[in-house]
Every structure is written in structure tokens, then in C-alpha cells.
Simulated scan of single mutants.
Amino acid sequence: MDDSLTHLLATTDQSDPTRCCFLLKVRPERLADYVEVHQRVWPEMREALSRCGWRRYSLFLDPDSGLVVGYFEADDTAAAIQAMGEEPVDGRWQAEMAQYFVQPDGGTPRLLPQYFHLV
């Protein structure tokens, strides 16, 4: 990334630690299965997300590219991500989801910086 853009994103007064947006990349031949499995997210996974402070969690999909955009809110998104990573069910869920993502790192969320928000 261009250094000047990196500096602008790092210093914007529009950033907010309570909102998080991230990208994932799903294998084109697995898109239907990936969407289907999300219609039945394990109850213990849903409970862990709530317990760790994830709110308004949504996933959006561009079916043409396999790009997934995730969004959630928390009192502190970094702490919520860390807490979720410590949940045993998250490890099992991530292992199950790995088959759907473009590898080597399509299943590693790429966090996007917020640079504008209209209230």
C-alpha cells in the first residue's frame, strides 16, 4: 500500500474501535455449500459470538468473485476478536470452514480500516 495512504488511514479521525469490517475469499466451486452451511451455524458458535461481544454480525457475498465481506460491532472489536479466538468452538468452526476458502490465506480475515462514517 502507498505510504501516504497508509498514513492517512492510520490518522483519520473517522476510525472507530467499535466497528469491524473484514474480507475473506471463498473457492468458486464451494460457494453454494458455504452459503448453505451458514444457514445452520452451530448454536454453540452463535452463543460464543454473543458471549465474546459480537453484535450486528453480518456476512455479505459477491457470488461472481467469491468475495465475502464481514461486518460486526463490539465495545472493543480487537478484544472481541481475541476473545473469540480463545473459544474452543471457534477453532472447530474455523477448521470446518477452511475447506471453503481460497488458500493459502483466503480464510484469514483481512481487516479493513474505517476512514469514513455517516451517523
Rank of each mutant, 00 (worst) to 15 (best):
V37A: 06
E47M: 09
G85A: 03
V35M: 05
F116R: 10
D64A: 15
D105V: 06
R27M: 09
Q14T: 03
A48F: 08
W54I: 01
L24W: 00
W93H: 10
A78L: 14
D62V: 08
Q82K: 14
R40H: 15
A74N: 01
W42M: 06
D75H: 11
W93L: 10
P88N: 03
Q94N: 13
A83M: 03
V69I: 15
H117F: 15
S65A: 04
W93S: 10
V37N: 05
D105Y: 06
H117C: 13
M97C: 07
E44Y: 00
F60A: 13
V119C: 10
L67G: 00
P88A: 06
E47V: 05
L5V: 15
D3A: 15
A79L: 11
R19Y: 09
A32T: 14
M1H: 14
T77H: 11
G107F: 06
V102H: 01
P109Y: 01
A78N: 12
V89S: 08
L111T: 13
R19W: 03
C21W: 14
A83D: 09
E73W: 02
V102Q: 03
A80E: 05
E73S: 03
R46W: 08
M45P: 00
W93I: 07
E36Y: 12
A80T: 06
M97V: 03
W54Y: 15
D13H: 14
A79T: 12
D75K: 10
W54D: 01
R92A: 14
E73I: 01
C21N: 13
E96D: 12
V26N: 00
D90Y: 15
D90W: 15
F72S: 02
Q39F: 08
M97W: 02
D76N: 15
G70R: 01
